[in-house]
C-alpha cells in the first residue's frame, strides 16, 4: 500500500473524529484540526513502528508532520526513497518484519 494511504488509514482509524470525511493529502492538520497535539505524538509513534524510522525531537515540526503528504515525504526521506507523485512505492521500502508479514497476507 502506498505510504500516503497507510498514513491516512492510521489517521482515519485512530485519530480522525469526523464520520464521513477522508483527510486530503495536502490538508494542513493545523488548519483543519484533523490531528491535535496528542494525535501528533501518536502519529510519530506510528511512523516509527510502521516504517521503522527514528524520529528525532527536532524533526517533529510543521514541515514534517502537518499533512499526510508531508508525513509521507518525511518517511521517504528517512528511508532514502525517491519522491513520487502519487504512484505506489509500497515495495520499495522495508518495514519491520512483524508488520510486513501481516501486510503481505492481507
Amino acid at each position: 500500500m502506498q505510504i500516503e494511504n497507510r498514513i491516512k488509514e492510521f489517521i482515519l482509524k485512530n485519530l480522525y473524529f469526523a464520520e464521513d470525511n477522508t483527510p486530503e493529502d495536502d490538508a494542513s492538520f493545523l488548519e483543519t484540526g484533523v490531528v491535535d497535539s496528542t494525535g501528533v505524538m501518536e502519529l510519530v509513534a506510528f511512523v516509527q513502528t510502521e516504517f521503522g524510522v527514528t524520529v528525532e525531537p527536532q524533526e517533529i515540526v510543521v514541515e514534517n508532520f502537518d499533512s499526510v503528504r508531508k508525513v509521507a515525504r518525511f518517511v521517504r526521506r528517512k528511508l532514502s526513497l525517491p519522491e513520487v507523485n502519487g504512484s505506489p512505492v509500497a515495495k520499495a521500502f522495508a518495514p519491520k518484519p512483524s508488520t510486513a508479514a501481516e501486510r503481505c497476507s492481507s
Binding site: S37, P57, Q58, V61, E63, F65
Partner: peptide
Amino acid sequence: PQNLLDAGVLNVF
C-alpha cells in the same frame, strides 16, 4: 518546546 516564534515546532510534550 520553547521556540514558538522561530520554528514550526509542534506542541509535543
